[in-house]
Design a protein around this nucleic acid. Structure first.
Lengths: 142, 142
DNA sequence: AACATTTAAGACTTATGATTCCTAAATATA
DNA sequence: TATATTTAGGAATCATAAGTCTTAAATGTT
């Protein structure tokens, strides 16, 4: 599995937020129900993204969470890194500590190319673009 | 992490076997020492690859494991699948059960392209080719 | 036959991530 | 001020992967 399950959930949460954002806070409970994810799990994930500066929260009635930035200023990689840390895919795919340009393992070059494409998937487009394209196609929504 | 740690070890084991194969069985203990992996872990990994038909073993003095096929007939994907199962990377990256061509999630198309490249890394070249290129460059060996 | 070597395989332990639960803190509203 | 709502965050549980140990089975060598 490329992404941790909690990262999958984080992305689902963000997509829901973007699709339903109207400057109000949205309750985590609502998102959990709509996305069919445990409320407790989503709460924790939200907290991580709050610490990462992607979301902000408000406690109390009418409270909830919302995006700090505009969807056109967020990349998938920001969400992924907020959950998995900043060194995603950084390591040698064979697990060699000292593998690198100076000291490549047997599949270093191949992995480098593949990683480029994966990171491009995470960095290339903003979340807004991804959602927009998606809406255009009138397809499966979160 | 893209690959499970045991899959990393499996690939290291295979590369060692290819580099030191001379039709004799090689002791798992030797591989474990040379590759700096726990003997117990490598034993289990070897057993999985034996069940997958990649390796064969011989019990007793002068026993050990060796490749069943020629390195030019083995692809990385064979090794990966022997440990991780045959549905590696098959699932939706956002974890949606029903995501597919008919019902794509917001990042389905992007993930499809990235997966293509990853699988190509695993399928495109035989292990022999990977090792040969590596030797040519006189670089880091396992 | 006895012994040493080596894989086979199951049991056990540890580590990590996923999940659930519970109490506290913040705050709008009546 | 009392109450209901909602996030915050720690504790506890569960599941799965990783790692270790122990005994059995196979077989070459003496």
């Amino acid at each position: 599995m490329l992404l941790a399950k909690s990262t999958e959930n984080a992305i689902q949460l963000i997509i829901y937020l973007i699709r339903h954002a109207d400057n109000d806070y949205i309750r985590v409970k609502e998102i959990a129900e709509q996305c069919n994810i445990s409320f407790f799990i989503l709460s924790k994930i939200a907290q991580k993204m709050i610490k990462a500066g992607i979301l902000e929260s408000y406690t109390g009635p009418n409270g909830g969470i919302k995006l700090v930035k505009n969807p056109s200023d967020i990349q998938l990689i920001d969400v992924v890194q907020s959950i998995e840390g900043t060194d995603v895919l950084d390591k040698c795919i064979l697990g060699f500590e000292h593998c690198g340009e100076m000291n490549p393992c047997a599949v270093h070059q191949h992995w480098k190319e593949a990683r480029e494409v994966i990171l491009n998937m995470f960095e290339g487009k903003t979340l807004k673009e991804i959602i927009d394209i998606d809406e255009l196609k009138e397809v499966y929504s979160v």
